[in-house]
Design a protein around this nucleic acid. Structure first.
Length: 828
RNA sequence: GCCGGAGUGGCGGAAUUGGCAGACGCACCGGACUUAAAAUCCGGCGGUUCGCGAGAACUGUACCGGUUCGAUCCCGGUCUCCGGCACCA
């Protein structure tokens, strides 16, 4: 065995051997309970960053541990290969997006292999592969046929830098999720998926996801944004028209003193038609449209409105109330119209004050300090109904129910539910994505491509203009096609799909990655789904994770997927920081994984990244910390070498076989060994706390060094310690451990060894250290035979010299004993 | 503004069910080995005060208060930071 730990040589040797022996291949019918562990697949940008290393190292520890525990583990990897960078490279450098992408995939796959992640590469998929995206198209057609995909002209989010539309989920604080440019609006004809039809189920089923972090579930809940209330119809005075509003406060209906329509509301035009107000309204709307999304929807924007010359009738009071348009009412929530109750809504209050509108209180807080008729701000809390006819005296919560019921009986309203969630806009005016497999026929309308003609291939004869229109329009051959229904001349859709569709089902394909005739076999997904453990960044809490749940539910309804929730357990790993900030090229604080691997080896990189912080927390990069991890691995190497050399020196006769020595030193090491294995098992298997698992192994190594230095150190016990140590460390630093395992004289891989067991008996000590507390303060320690009862322990404690010193001359009030831990004597 | 989460040594972090705060690592300090250095091994390391010294006392988990024999952990309040949502009727 070499004196020095040579990471490079060892890692190359074992990576080659793993590949040659196809060690990580998963067979559906292999023995053992199935476990599907998955890390979010990367976009093939060309280089792995530390965030990737962290993500995949976490997954690999779990995967390797579970394999050793006897599970049949599915641990695949693939590529989220469609997306803008490839196309931008094409525009800038004239490289074909497919070639650019595949070159990047090659490079990143090689990098992943140098990290030693145990992927079954035989199941690798790339979403840009026509044999894969044909199924993305196939799913889209299923959506269309189910009535859940539709095309609609609507004002949509437009990123002027990416030159494409964006889904609501991709607009973060009014900026593009990808490039950070402020998002504007454009009126475009686009494809949508009806995710809103699944809103309630997406919300309800969150309750079952016990294995998800609470914050992610909460973010999804907020995003779905369910609100319960009522819709109420207000007749327009001197007209047959009605204006429908949505309110969560039907109890305040008596206090509705004016109405507001969103400026884009279609009734604005009809109500102002041929009146003096028409021109003003147009001007107002025009002015609003020049604001961008952030300005328009800012809560701090000054409320502005315009009376449009018409009145509505409060259906409860019969009062004529003015109709306004205002910048604070949004067209795309509720009905685009509100009843305004200034006394009990902060926004309505501000508006009413500004325009001198009537304020009628209808909920009495019953508080001295609030003068209801001279309110300084809206009163929004609970109270008793006043000024509300027959409903006076009710608690306003009851009034919500009563007034809704009354409105329903009278036929002018009913209870409804509203969601904040909008349908998913999936059209993109870009090239490098899955073509939307739809054809427009002037005769038949929108018709899906025939399934047997899939995939609809991306044309190669295109120009990359990057100018706001799909490059597919520039193909002379792509567009013109015969209608699949009537055979007449028709035109293909030229937009491509949002790449989030690809990642919404990829995890299903791994179950049967090579299937040529079907999306996947029923048996394969029944075998592997759901994903037992999913690992990725929290930035996908809403986007990817909500879409994937939606797809899975839809495919389940279609009888294609066997489960309605894709991911049983979710771990959202924290970011990797340097100097307190996210690693980024612009900040120039990027540490490249390659550099670390070349210098210290992948095992050190993995160990450091897992040790420095618990997986879900942020991780601060530390060069000194990496040194420390490297030092530890050298220490492990040296320990094993010393054990083996010790055996050689002692001769084979004294080899393994009688590790039963009962000396105190041996006893202490066996305790440390079994404690460590128990802790590592729990920390990996149950808690996913890899940092504390590693610290437990470090403690074991410290204990092992200490024991090895004692005079009568038993070679057999040292060997047992070394071997169990190697196995327990192997999920973290597999290359080193394979090498050490081989040095110990074993032929096979550590991966086919069973996970080391611990012996509960070894965890029971003969004596225990008990803390002595006086009035809750630690005043001493004493040693007792293990396993004393609370009473016996208290008696023992009272008899110690320390206790006597403190209790002497004092009155002992009581004494609390916690077996194995402490005794607290309370004195006066 | 609303909804979450977090605050522990010089630093990353640990304390799993209310029971010895600071495991493990980094940095630092000391010692051994060495002509010397590096590497390695061993030891020390929250703060304040007292003591020549072994040691002792007090104090300490953002801050104020509470419950409890006992609180980093539970409860009430305050501050700060982070994240999400934000004119959603």
């Amino acid at each position: 065995m070499n004196e020095r730990y040579e990471a490079q040589r060892i890692e190359q040797k074992w990576q080659a051997r793993w590949e040659r022996e196809r060690l990580f291949r998963t067979e559906d019918d292999a023995p053992g309970e199935k476990f599907y562990i998955l890390e979010m697949f990367p976009y093939p940008s060309g280089k792995l960053h530390m965030g990737h290393v962290r993500n995949y190292s976490i997954g690999d520890v779990a995967a390797r541990y579970l394999r050793m525990k006897g599970y049949n583990v599915l641990h695949p990897m693939g590529w989220d290969a469609f997306g803008l960078p490839a196309e931008n490279a094409a525009i800038k450098n004239g490289v074909r997006p497919d070639l650019w992408t595949h070159a990047n995939i090659e490079e990143m796959r090689a990098q992943l292999k140098t990290l030693g992640i145990s992927y079954d590469w035989e199941r690798e998929i790339a979403m840009c592969d026509p044999e894969i995206y044909r199924w993305t198209q196939w799913i889209f057609i299923r959506f269309f046929k189910a009535g859940l995909a539709y095309k609609k002209k609507n004002p949509v989010n437009w990123c002027p830098s990416c030159e494409t539309v964006l889904a609501n989920e991709q607009v973060i604080d009014g900026h593009c999720e990808r490039c950070g440019t402020a998002v504007g609006k454009k009126n475009l004809d686009q494809w949508y998926l009806k995710i809103t039809k699944y809103a309630q189920r997406l919300l309800d089923d969150l309750d079952e996801l016990d294995g998800w972090p609470a914050n992610v579930k909460l973010m999804q809940r907020n995003w779905i944004g369910r609100s319960a209330g009522a819709q109420v119809d207000f007749p327009v005075a001197d007209s047959d028209e009605k204006i429908r509003v949505y309110t969560t406060r039907p109890d305040t209906l008596f206090g509705a003193t004016y109405m507001v329509l969103a400026p884009e509301h279609p009734m604005v035009r009809t109500l102002t038609y041929k009146t003096e107000y028409a021109a003003q309204a147009d001007a107002f709307i025009d002015r609003l449209q020049h604001l961008n999304d952030i300005e328009r929807s800012s809560a701090t924007l000054e409320k502005e409105g315009l009376f449009i010359g018409r009145y509505a009738v409060n259906p409860l009071t019969g009062a004529k109330i003015p109709i306004y348009i205002a910048n604070y009412v949004l067209m795309d929530y509720g009905t685009g119209a509100i009843m305004a109750v200034p006394a009990h809504d902060a926004r309505d209050f501000a508006f009413a004050k500004k325009y001198g509108l009537e304020i009628i209180p209808v909920v009495d807080p019953g508080r001295e300090d609030i003068d209801l008729y001279h309110l300084e701000e809206a009163f929004v809390a609970e109270g008793t109904m006043i000024n509300s006819g027959d409903f006076n005296g009710l608690n306003n919560r009851d009034a919500i129910r009563e007034i809704t019921a009354y409105a329903e009986k009278q036929g002018f309203g009913k209870a409804t539910v509203n969601f904040r969630l909008r349908d998913w806009l999936i059209s993109r005016q870009r090239y490098w994505g899955t073509p939307i497999p739809m054809i427009y026929c002037p005769h038949c309308g929108w018709v899906p491509e025939k399934e047997e003609n899939l995939p609809v291939l991306l044309p190669e004869d295109v120009e990359f203009t990057g100018r706001g229109e799909s490059p597919l329009t520039t193909s002379p051959t792509f567009r013109q096609v015969a209608c699949p229904q009537c055979g007449g001349p028709a035109e293909r859709e030229v937009d491509t799909m949002d790449t989030f569709l690809d990642s919404s089902w990829y995890f299903l394909r791994y179950c049967d990655a090579g299937n040529e005739g079907r999306i996947f076999s029923d048996a394969s997904v029944r075998k592997w789904m759901p994903v037992d453990q999913y690992i990725g960044g929290v930035e996908h809490a809403i986007l990817h994770l909500l879409y994937a749940r939606f797809f899975t539910k839809f495919l389940c309804d279609q009888g294609i997927a066997p489960v309605s929730e894709p991911f049983t357990n979710l771990l959202t790993q924290g970011m990797v920081l340097k100097d307190g900030k996210k690693m980024s090229k612009t900040l120039g604080n990027v540490v490249s994984p390659e550099e670390i691997i070349v210098r210290y080896g992948a095992d050190t990189a993995r160990l450091f990244i897992l040790f420095a912080s618990p997986p879900e927390k942020e991780l601060e990069w530390s060069d000194a910390g990496v040194e420390g991890s490297y030092r530890f691995l050298k220490r492990v190497w040296t320990f094993v070498r010393r054990v083996l050399e010790g055996e050689k020196a002692a001769g084979s006769a004294d080899g393994p076989g009688h590790a039963g020595e009962t000396g105190a030193d041996a006893r202490a090491l066996r305790y440390a060994l079994n404690t460590a294995i128990k802790k590592v098992s729990a920390d990996i298997g149950e808690r996913y706390n890899f940092n504390t698992a590693i610290s437990a192994i470090m403690e074991l190594v410290n204990a092992a060094y200490k024991y090895a230095d004692t005079k009568n150190a038993e070679p057999a016990l040292l060997r047992e310690t070394a071997e169990k140590l190697i196995l327990a460390l192997s999920p973290f630093t597999p290359h080193l451990c394979e090498e050490l395992w081989e040095c110990c004289g074993h032929a096979g891989s550590v991966l086919s060894e069973p996970w080391p067991a611990w012996d509960e008996k070894e965890l029971v000590l003969d004596t225990e250290e008990i803390a002595l507390q006086i009035n809750g303060k630690v005043r001493g320690k004493f040693s007792v035979p293990a396993g004393l009862s609370a009473d016996a322990l208290a008696a023992y404690a009272a008899d110690t010299d320390e206790a006597r010193a403190f209790t002497d001359g004092k009155q002992v009030v009581k004494s609390i004993a916690v077996p194995g831990r402490l005794v607290n004597i309370v004195i006066k």
